[in-house]
Every structure is written in structure tokens, then in C-alpha cells.
């Protein structure tokens, strides 16, 4: 897999991260290295092997539908960089 500048830009935009040119070069080449290494997986035949997302066959872990008290609003907002009344605040989302 070949990584080019456009792909790096695309990944930045997916990640909501902006790199400067030097960083793009460095990160680009490091991602290239690891991806080249990763390509070795292609040697491995995985036809018919099931994708395993969970290590152990645990299923059906449920919670009862019983209300517990919510957290105090002060706790929820305690770390908020910007808040107003009982809300978090962001720059306006609609034009």
C-alpha cells in the first residue's frame, strides 16, 4: 500500500487533526513504514476464518430497566471548558 500526500490529508480530515508540512512528511513516512510491514498479513491465508471481534464467547450481558439517579449537573459540567446555565457551549452549529 502506497501512502501519498492526498491520503494523509484525507486521514487528517477524518481524524479532525491538522498537521504542518514537516509533520505530514514525518507521519506519512512512518505510516508508510508500518503499513508496508502490515502488508505481510497478505501472506496469510485467512479464507474461511471467522473475524473474531471478542476474545471470549461471552454473550447476553444485560442490565435491568431500573432508573438510578443521574449525576448532579455540576459534576457533568465540572470539566466543561465552556458552559452556560446547565449546558455545554459550542460555537453556533447553524448558519
Amino acid at each position: 500500500m502506497k501512502i501519498d500526500g492526498d491520503l494523509i490529508k484525507y486521514l487528517e480530515s477524518l481524524a479532525r487533526i491538522e498537521l504542518n508540512e514537516d509533520e505530514e512528511k514525518k507521519v506519512g513516512s512512518e505510516i508508510q513504514d508500518i503499513l508496508t510491514y502490515i502488508d505481510m498479513l497478505n501472506e496469510l491465508n485467512t479464507d474461511g476464518v471467522e473475524a473474531m471481534s471478542h476474545s471470549f464467547p461471552i454473550t447476553n450481558v444485560f442490565r435491568k430497566d431500573e432508573v438510578k439517579p443521574s449525576a448532579p449537573n455540576e459534576d457533568i459540567l465540572a470539566n466543561a471548558p465552556h458552559k452556560q446555565d446547565t449546558c455545554f457551549v459550542v460555537p453556533k452549529t447553524v448558519e
Binding site: L7, I8, A15, I17, V27, E30, I31
Partner: peptide, 15 residues
């Protein structure tokens, strides 16, 4: 930087 790199790599393999 290391975190950014891994986040970008993760975005790649899931895209």
C-alpha cells in the same frame, strides 16, 4: 505526535 499518528493509522484501516 505518536497519538496523532496512531489515530490516523486507525482511521485508515477502518475507512
Amino acid at each position: 505526535m505518536e497519538v496523532k499518528k496512531r489515530i490516523m493509522l486507525g482511521n485508515f484501516v477502518l475507512s
